[in-house]
Design a binder for these strands. Sequence first.
DNA 1: GCGTCGATGGCA
DNA 2: GCCATCGACGCG
Length: 199
Amino acid sequence: MRCGGDNAELMAAKRSLRKLRRSFYDRDAIDVARELIGKILVHRRAGEEFRARVVETEAYVGPHDLACHASKGRTGRTEVMFGRAGHAYVYLIYGMYQMLNIVTAGVGDAQAVLIRAAEPLGGWESDLSGPGKLAREMQIGRAQNGLDLTGSELFLLDDPADRPRVVRSKRVGIDYAGEWVHALLRFYDAQSASVSKPR
DNA sequence: GCGTCGATGGCA
DNA sequence: GCCATCGACGCG
């Protein structure tokens, strides 16, 4: 992995980045989903570090939300969603793609935020415009399920200088979810070219 | 540029 | 028998 060098501006920017704490995640998914836009996702693994700026998320707001996996009850797969905020919920879909989610809200309150797209940072080129591609390219999978995001392997950073214009829309790929299809629970950076389609 | 379709495996 | 997806294919 490439590491910046001695550019003064870059060093100053890096110094102001702060890891998101438990309190950031311990809120309703809808608030966390909106505020995650512009945050920096970091995955350290096997001597490599992947960084990317989050540009698209979706909120899954609890058991009453028919698109939320928790609406099917507490199962082996969804167990982490019912646990403490600030942990990774990663699952396999369509037999070949892994989805990275962030558990939010209190214990027993099963809410989560799906990370759908990001822009690679740090001289690393990759297409992260979709949840399956993002997880694959950042080498995030079920091995990372349950990881504590206040730790040092998988976490998010706040860049105080990054103030994106965030817009809302319907969530993608949940046509089975009845009236919840229409809920505006998807958030994305209006300026980003890395947002997954459709707009 | 669109719509349609198949891959592929864990889970309920 | 579903899927919080993606990429390949066929149109005309």
